[in-house]
Computed example of a mutant assay.
Amino acid sequence: MEILPEEATVEEPIAGRSVGEVYRVQGRADLHAFLLDAVEESGGRILYASDASRAPIFIGAQLDTDERIGMLIYPFRVTRNAIKNRPVDEVRGQLRYGSEDSWEREHPVGRDVAGLDVTMILGIDIADDVVIGLDANLWDPLPMGISFYAKDSELDQAMRNGWHVWEKINRGGSRRSEPRSPTNLETVVAFVPRRLFDYVRLERRASALRLDPALRYSAALAIGDNANRDTTPIRHVLEEQFALTSEQILDIIGGRNRLAVAVRGGVAEHHLEDQLRRSPDVKQIERLDVDAMHDFNVTLVDGRKLRVECKNASPRTTAGGDFKVEVQKTRASKADPASRFYPVDGFDVVAACLFSPTGKWEFRFGATDAMPRHGSFPDRLAPVQTVTADWRSNLADLET
């Protein structure tokens, strides 16, 4: 009998279908068993599971709702082994299939051309009973030999809450000069086994709609906030209301500039609200959705009450390299040419979202009482404001 070395590549179908490159693996039966247990713990019944000596693993499962899901999973072990020059408060996984001399070539991730099966790249921490989900769009092709890390604090939150989402800075390295993500950020999700099918739904939607890291982050948060997981709707309420698929809705938005601008504004407000709610300096936040009103009422721990208006910064900086933000309304009344410009006392703070110029969902806060006035209307703000050194990245640090 011919004995193949551990993790040698073999060319054969899994589950009667071709999924690209298949690897022979050893010593990973516990990862295979972990995934099968997770299927059952999350409310599924296993219809088919490929062999533990092959990677990726294909699992077919049926839910109580009779929904059937196919999962093509690339599992990698996560450990707490001490690594030289790395922090001690983190875990490590390594993308490792095949022999080391094969790592220099590309290892594309298998995909179902029909879009029915879901491909996932998972780091499995057997000791802590928690899973780390990597963005299958960003990690394709698999960079074999590369390690990924997560802080203990992130996994602790996942173990406490069952589901935890965070953004991680993504940088180039010795084997990849450019960052994996064009925004320099990637979204990571950690979850416990009973939330496996929640992650399957997230990955299915993220892959089908080609969600970038920021939208993937929002989608993951929405799934995490869903308390009644057993009755998660297959279709979003807007899909039902508009009689369109989510992809059709996004195509409509992407094809109409005003809609896209409005959606970017809403996404910026979402990230701003999330940042403020997580800030230890914020005592209370109220989101407003009223025409001619600012976006948020914010009460700080120090007692200050601030009216905050969220605006997207321009993708282009000033000649001096400073960010700039447009602070004016879309239209003006024909009877009042000043109506397009905001009154100086309309709100206290402008929160400039820097995603357009930087690709990062971060903000700079400026006090309106220190902003330049309109040249013709001294009681109005100038339509374009420069984000100067007086603006702050933390709202509580702003002098108001």
Rank of each mutant, 00 (worst) to 15 (best):
W163S: 04
L209Q: 06
A127C: 10
L354W: 01
V131K: 02
S42T: 01
D379C: 03
G70E: 06
G320Y: 07
A268S: 07
M293R: 14
E106N: 11
G265T: 03
M71Q: 08
N226F: 15
P179N: 00
A319Q: 13
A29E: 14
D156C: 09
E247D: 12
L381T: 00
F191K: 00
R180G: 09
E362L: 09
A49M: 10
S18N: 13
E247T: 12
P383C: 01
Q26W: 14
Q284E: 14
F296Q: 06
L395V: 10
H294N: 03
R331T: 14
N137P: 11
V308L: 03
R96Q: 12
A136G: 08
R17D: 07
V78R: 03
M1V: 10
R256S: 14
D230Q: 13
S393K: 13
H270M: 15
G173D: 05
S333M: 11
F58W: 10
D125R: 00
A367L: 01
D251G: 09
P141N: 02
W391F: 06
T388D: 05
Q275M: 13
G20H: 00
E7P: 13
R307I: 07
V263E: 08
N161Y: 11
E399Y: 12
H270A: 14
G110F: 02
E186P: 07
I46C: 04
F363A: 08
A319R: 15
M120P: 06
L272Q: 06
D37E: 14
M1G: 13
S53V: 13
V298N: 00
R278Q: 08
R392Y: 07
E104A: 15
D390R: 05
P182H: 02
V78S: 04
I14E: 00
S147G: 08
I169C: 12
E154S: 13
V237F: 14
A190G: 04
I14T: 05
R304K: 03
R77G: 09
G366Y: 00
D117C: 10
Q62C: 09
L259H: 08
K324W: 09
G303V: 00
R331Y: 14
T183A: 07
G173C: 04
D230N: 14
M120D: 05
V78W: 02
K151Q: 11
S333K: 14
A292C: 15
N184K: 15
